[in-house]
Nucleic acid binder design. Structure first.
Lengths: 169, 169
DNA sequence: TATTGTTATACTCTATAACTATA
DNA sequence: TATAGTTATAGAGTATAACAATA
């Protein structure tokens, strides 16, 4: 079901036809990328809700803090989670209310906070991360280790290209 | 959990160490997959909003209808867009209000509708699809045609595995 | 003046469940 | 009884913009 006439055979196509073909391939790839992500993401969201009564953004915020035991500033969380500042305030408020993270003063800048996992947040995250890992491992169960690496490498190329500031091109 | 005799190099690691390593690789892959999708999706959403004052779900619904000129039933749209039925009603209502799609009676089943693009919807979609394609092509600009194919193939494996009904779990 | 974070607001998307009308 | 679609609701998630405190 897939046109395997894509590589060396391209030389038989003129520029315009090749462009059309490549555009089509890019679109197919995007739709598949989106579908895969949505399928896995839906499982993760459902699992987090059913088993831990939490959400993906909350989990993601805690995951960032896990990687930075000394804490992160609101601004840094905003950047890392790719959402605007107001939302970080909201999510952080919820986590503080549950006793999972805490706001600490930043010495030298009284505007800013350093947000950190509490011991309880650390323990809770460990539980969630364990389950989360199992879901993810299962999601990529169908791939061999070599294929996982390949996928990781290719997506790295996509990511770097994406993050390049869109200059005048 | 999965096929064991994958790669010669792995034989230097015991089972547990290999499991740890593979779990870690799966997690890294998932984070990268999610990031790539979010980066591209954000661009698409922004473009659709700024240039066409529309949203991704609306665009996706129209894209499905484009591929099925004879129309699709609400149930089919619900399945294809992977959202529950009530949402399809809402999105369809909006598109009908804008004159971009229409509900037609299904002969032989007076419960169901056949939803189809109007001529105006068809024309509007052509405009949007053209811009959309440009965004996507640019997103994968950094890959060679062969890499696009590879990525597509690997994600196909992920997708099929994902859609397999989760049996003994 | 610029930056950090907060507050207030509005909107889209989503799942759930009760409902109508057909089959 | 089962199915197709609708309605109503509640909540997640997001961006925007005005605002306060501090740099």
């Amino acid at each position: 079901m897939n046109g395997s006439d894509s590589h060396a055979m391209d030389d038989t196509l003129d520029l315009e036809a090749r462009a059309h073909s490549e555009h089509h391939e890019a679109l197919r790839l995007w739709l598949r990328l989106l579908t895969c992500t949505q399928l896995i993401e839906k499982q993760v969201r459902t699992g987090l809700r059913e088993q831990f009564d939490t959400t993906l953004p909350r989990f993601d915020l805690m995951a960032q803090l896990e990687r930075h035991p000394e804490g992160l500033k609101m601004k840094e969380l905003s950047h890392r989670l790719m959402v605007t500042g107001g939302n970080i305030t909201g999510i952080t408020d919820q986590l503080v209310a549950e006793g999972l993270v805490e706001r600490l003063e930043v010495e030298g800048d009284r505007r800013a906070w350093r947000v950190r996992l509490t011991p309880r947040g650390h323990a809770m995250f460990a539980l969630m991360a364990q389950r989360h890992e199992a879901w993810i491992v299962q999601a990529f169960d169908g791939l061999q280790a070599r294929e996982v690496d390949q996928l990781h490498r290719l997506l790295g190329k996509v990511k770097r290209h994406q993050q390049r500031p869109a200059a005048g091109d």
